[in-house]
Simulated scan of single mutants.
Amino acid sequence: MSLSITKLSVGPMDNNAYLLRCTSTGAALLVDAANEPSRLLPLIGPEGISSVVTTHRHPDHWQALAEVVSATGAESLAHPADAPGIPVVTGTLVDGEDLRLGDLTLSVIHLVGHTPGSIALYYGQEGGHLFTGDALFPGGPGRTTNPTDFNSLMDDLEEKVFGRLPDETVIHPGHGKDSTLGTERPSIPEWRARGW
């Protein structure tokens, strides 16, 4: 496999941090420096990382960000709509942008609803891998606080994720276990009906 994925659950809220590495070049990035830099930095190792991508502005997803960026010299990337709520941001990512990782390409998908600037990263090779932050979990979309945000998130998920990506795509969420789009797809009408 050209993309190595290492998942580590950290902190009191069991946040998932993901180390993504291009196996041919060794280039790496971290998705969500959520907590416990004392565990994240050994995971990253001496090879280092080029960037940390923060999926959204909620504090449980960036508690270790400043320390990881300071220790590694990595860029800190987030969507412009959420960047003001994240302590260290050195660059931004927008919908449809390609993020290079060595020989590999990750696509940025902006999903509005859980927060205004939530993003997912999609790697389209080898069956497909989607790093969703808190926008999509096994069993439904991420938490929203009003019907407008819920409908926005569901619209984006249906159009940009379920409408475009294949069923075998693995969902790697911000908390908990993985799933696939094919497993979750039949439940979309139920999610819409219940409103969460």
Rank of each mutant, 00 (worst) to 15 (best):
P46K: 09
A81Y: 02
P84K: 02
P141W: 07
I49N: 09
S9P: 07
I188G: 05
G113L: 05
D82V: 02
G96T: 07
T90S: 15
V170P: 02
A66Y: 02
E75Y: 04
L99S: 01
S24E: 11
T115Q: 04
I109H: 09
H175A: 12
G124F: 05
L99E: 02
L153V: 12
S51W: 04
A28K: 14
S107R: 13
S187L: 15
A78W: 05
V88Y: 03
G127E: 04
R192C: 10
D82A: 00
Y18S: 03
Q125I: 06
G133C: 04
I49E: 12
G176Q: 14
P46H: 08
M154N: 04
W191V: 08
D149A: 14
L181S: 01
E36W: 03
G163L: 14
V10D: 03
T105L: 05
Q125W: 10
I44P: 12
T148I: 15
H114A: 03
F150P: 07
T90H: 09
A64P: 09
C22T: 10
H61M: 07
D95F: 09
V53W: 00
A33I: 00
F131M: 05
P147E: 06
L43Q: 14
V108E: 01
S4Y: 13
T180G: 09
L65R: 04
V52P: 00
T72S: 07
D95C: 04
L3W: 10
Y123V: 01
H61R: 04
A74P: 03
P173R: 02
S51V: 07
R57K: 05
V69S: 06
C22E: 10
V108S: 02
I5E: 12
M1S: 15
L104E: 13
G133L: 03
Y123G: 01
T6Q: 15
T105H: 01
A120T: 02
L8N: 04
H110Y: 04
S51A: 15
L130E: 02
R185M: 09
S4H: 15
L40M: 08
T105V: 10
R39F: 11
G142T: 06
N151A: 11
R39A: 15
G174R: 01
S50C: 08
V68R: 07
M13D: 13
A66R: 09
